[in-house]
Amino acid sequence: MCITDYDLLQMSDFFGSACSLWFTLVAMASIRKKHVAGLLQIVGVFGLFIIIVYDKSSLCVIAIPIFSGLATITCSWGVKMYRRKHLYPSWRRYVFYLVPGVVLAVIGGVSFAFLETESNYKYLHSLWHVCVALSIVLLLPPKSGGKGEICGVSESTVAMSQLPTVPFSEDVS
Rank of each mutant, 00 (worst) to 15 (best):
F112T: 03
A133L: 09
Y94C: 05
G78R: 00
W77H: 04
A63N: 12
L59Y: 14
V61M: 10
I66C: 06
S68R: 05
A29Q: 02
S68F: 12
A133D: 08
W128R: 06
F112V: 03
V99G: 06
G69Q: 00
V61C: 12
V95N: 11
K33P: 11
L48P: 07
I50L: 15
A37E: 11
N120T: 00
H129L: 00
S30L: 13
P100D: 03
V106P: 04
V132G: 06
W77R: 00
Y88W: 09
R32D: 15
G109V: 05
V53T: 15
L104V: 00
Q41T: 14
N120M: 02
V95R: 10
T72E: 02
W91L: 13
H125L: 01
R92D: 13
V132P: 04
W91F: 13
M81A: 06
V61A: 12
A105D: 03
C60K: 14
V106R: 04
S90A: 07
S57C: 13
A71M: 10
L48R: 08
H86A: 12
A133Q: 07
D55L: 09
V36P: 14
W91S: 13
Y123K: 02
F46W: 15
E116I: 10
I31D: 06
F49Y: 15
I50Y: 15
I31Q: 07
Y94R: 02
A37H: 07
I31K: 07
V110S: 03
L104M: 07
L127W: 01
V43C: 15
I51Y: 11
V53E: 15
F49V: 11
C60Q: 14
A71C: 11
L115F: 09
A113Q: 04
S119M: 05
I31P: 06
F114H: 08
V106T: 07
S119L: 07
L40V: 03
Y97L: 05
G69Y: 01
S119W: 05
V79Q: 07
G101I: 01
Y121D: 11
Y54E: 15
F49C: 14
E118P: 05
H129N: 04
A113G: 00
R93H: 08
Y82H: 12
Q41G: 15
E118G: 11
K85Q: 12
V132S: 01
